[in-house]
């Protein structure tokens, strides 16, 4: 399998993997955020990111440049996320986690369908945030765009860490997620912190979509589905309660998928998804809280 190694080829696969992993990372951070703020996994997270991306695409078609469209979309997505929580999640706030998960599955269908309905199913393309001119170093090609995307996800991690660590609101959100009942008693408006969590996660999802879509070259209404799967896997691999873990997990996953698909011939491209997920499962069995997650102490 690995007899005649072409090192430039391997290095190129690693770079391509980091580049793909970078597109999973920001969404993975969004998943971590909403998990920490609300204790649920949002199955519609990827579709909301897709929807935001289409909004930005519409803006760029109406004369906006990339970055102004980016800012408008992220702000609008925050508002949209809060509104969505108020309308759809609020009524089931105290229901079981499973009920909320099913509501997000329902949202998944609604948002995906609505995007097809509003924007026709033809593939779209939008301008890049960063330069994609190839840079060659020792026979390996990469671009500013690859670095920029990973940089943005790390920046998001830093901002979130600062927010949760040092702001009153951030602390309130963490408390509300950990123990809603006693938080209520201590005067935290739990319902609103959850709405805020949705707003932040949707805004971050918009960032993820806007980072992921342009360098793909083309995207359609389903482009976030595989990214959500890998982001989910990356977040769990890194430890679902660690934002930095989510970035590390996503990048590792991107590289691992490429090397597996390219150099292990019986896996190839068709089985790499399954094998990669199986390996993550193996990691979890050894280290159930993920690479960088905190283990919950459970005495049995």
């Amino acid at each position: 399998m690995l007899l005649a190694v072409d090192w430039a080829g391997v290095a190129q696969q690693v770079v391509a993997g980091l580049s793909s992993g970078g597109t999973y990372a920001t969404l993975a951070v969004a998943l971590v955020l909403i998990y920490r703020a609300t204790g649920v996994v949002n199955f519609a997270q990827g579709e909301l990111a897709m929807f935001s991306t289409f909004v930005a695409w519409t803006l760029t078609r109406h004369g906006f440049a990339y970055w102004p469209a980016f800012v408008v979309t992220v702000v609008a997505s925050f508002a949209g996320g809060v509104a969505l929580e108020r309308v759809v999640i609020r009524p089931v706030e105290r229901a079981s986690v499973l009920t909320i998960a099913i509501v997000t599955i329902g949202l998944f269908f609604v948002v995906n369908g609505a995007a097809f309905w509003i924007w026709s199913p033809e593939v779209k393309s939008m301008p890049n945030a960063f330069s994609t001119r190839p840079i060659h170093v020792a026979g390996v090609a990469f671009s500013i765009s690859d670095l920029g995307i990973i940089g943005v996800s790390l920046l998001a991690v830093l901002l979130l860490w600062l927010f949760f660590r040092f702001t009153k609101l951030g602390l309130a959100m963490r408390a509300a997620a950990l123990n809603p009942d006693s938080s209520r008693l201590s005067g935290i408006r739990v319902s609103w912190t959850i709405a805020l969590g949705w707003g932040l996660a949707t805004a971050l999802g918009a960032v993820a979509g806007l980072m992921a879509a342009p360098p793909l070259g083309s995207f359609d209404q389903n482009f976030m589905q595989p990214i959500l799967l890998y982001a989910f896997a990356g977040a769990v691999l890194g430890g679902i309660d660690s934002a930095l873990g989510a970035v590390v997990g996503s990048l590792a996953l991107g590289v691992f998928l490429n090397l597996l698909g390219t150099y292990v011939s019986w896996v190839g491209t068709d089985l790499r998804q399954g094998v990669a997920l199986a390996v993550i499962l193996g990691v979890l069995l050894v280290k159930p809280a993920g690479l960088l997650g905190t283990a919950t102490v459970r005495s049995v």
Partner: peptide
């Protein structure tokens, strides 16, 4: 080089 409809991108295949 094959790709699957569920793949996110074809960067790896093109590099190969």
């Amino acid at each position: 080089q094959g790709y699957d409809v569920t793949d996110t991108d074809v960067k790896s295949q093109i590099a190969r």
